[in-house]
Design a protein around this nucleic acid. Sequence first.
DNA 1: CGAGCACAGTTACAATCCGTCACATATTCG
DNA 2: CGAATATGTGACGGATTGTAACTGTGCTCG
Lengths: 248, 248
Amino acid sequence: MSMQLSSVQPTKRISTHDATACAANLSSLFVDQPAESVASGRTIFWEGDKATQVFEVAEGMLRALRLLRDGRRVIVGFLKPGDLVGVSFKDKYIYTVEAVTKVALRRFPRHLFEGEIARQPKLREMIFSKLCDEMSAAQDQTVLLSRRSADEKLTSFLLLMANRQIGQHVEVNLPMTRQDIADYLGMTIETVSRTTTKLVSHGIVAVPDRHIITILRMETLRSIARGEDLEAASAPTTTNKRRLPANA
Amino acid sequence: MSMQLSSVQPTKRISTHDATACAANLSSLFVDQPAESVASGRTIFWEGDKATQVFEVAEGMLRALRLLRDGRRVIVGFLKPGDLVGVSFKDKYIYTVEAVTKVALRRFPRHLFEGEIARQPKLREMIFSKLCDEMSAAQDQTVLLSRRSADEKLTSFLLLMANRQIGQHVEVNLPMTRQDIADYLGMTIETVSRTTTKLVSHGIVAVPDRHIITILRMETLRSIARGEDLEAASAPTTTNKRRLPANA
DNA sequence: CGAGCACAGTTACAATCCGTCACATATTCG
DNA sequence: CGAATATGTGACGGATTGTAACTGTGCTCG
């Protein structure tokens, strides 16, 4: 990985024209930087590394993860184009980031990044807003992990990934491995497989390719994610309306 | 709850003297405000409410939670004195906040709060830092929830709560109910009870009072939280040193 | 003061879901 | 083509959960 930005010269130029014209767009900070290419599987930085750089994802997907002492892996998030990576106001990164696919990144030294934030109220607002989105996403994952059944977890995950894709498309792209999904959802790879198979056998989704899941029955998927029983939800009739009390 | 701060007068005075003397302390923003008292169980604000206020906890404990459509409750964090509540840069609060105990709060209108942030670089830095701590805490909870066994979850929770207490004290104060703990850890209240009992019967903790758990064997507790089996860890001899490979 | 009540917490038991282990199948990459 | 990796499938046992009964504590109200 090259360190193109260690020279301050081009950055200064950018920041000055930013202050007038480009304050409306967050990625304006990065847009003049060359996108570095990173092969899939490569590590961008490690948890505990000194947080000296900020990145913008231009292309591809990354995973943010924490390693536990006993070797288990917890994936705390997936990063897609447009996301900022490594925005930290502590001195160290709090998680490791690895490329899931081939990735294109734009890099920015942290101290300059912070300088821009101090100088540009609009930019600052956008970063704050981004951080809040991140907080929100982190809490969404918390909610996801507290879900009881594997069915709920996986369907919620699919909807989460589907939301990131364009528009109403029911074709969900999953570049990450089953192991990644399992480590994100706090389950085993076997359970991910079995649950996927179950969804397929009920006609709720199809798996034309390892890394593509097509949602066939969106509403059914939604009701399972909401906590409805899969068997009940996949039956096409009298599912939502009738809800018998347990003691009736 | 009174709305003492709807008048701008006293706030202006504070902000001006802040700019010189008190920029080093975050709570200087709130310190001249009267602390409002809130009874336990009362709601401070609801998820989805317009985010018009920021609060500082002066005394007591609160819970931040999200309600799921099926009625389940997910607690995304506990708040203690010194914490800021409702710092959002979106227009709406993303979780509900309720008082666990009787609580004393200082209130600050959001737009003034943001004005101060814009004006005071030092303050801004501290808020950013606080947000990062929050992110870190959110991810810690994610890690906590991905832990497999109830033993690991509860012991990790106890250590988390113990860290917030002063110094080396092994007496952990738990003002929240078992239901709160269960909703935080993603388990049932019964499992919380059973696991607590198990820890007591192994002499690892004692429960002198419903809301107090005394840690008797800190190192044992730590090793359980790290993933070691409770039965193995609670045996006083040859526990940490020997680790036989599964296929030996 | 004590009966009655509500609520928090505990314990027991049965059902089940998930993780572990084992193996089959596919895909990728040299 | 063969090794390595990723994924799917099945059997089995154990841990967690739900149900339900029980205990204990604090509170109200007669």
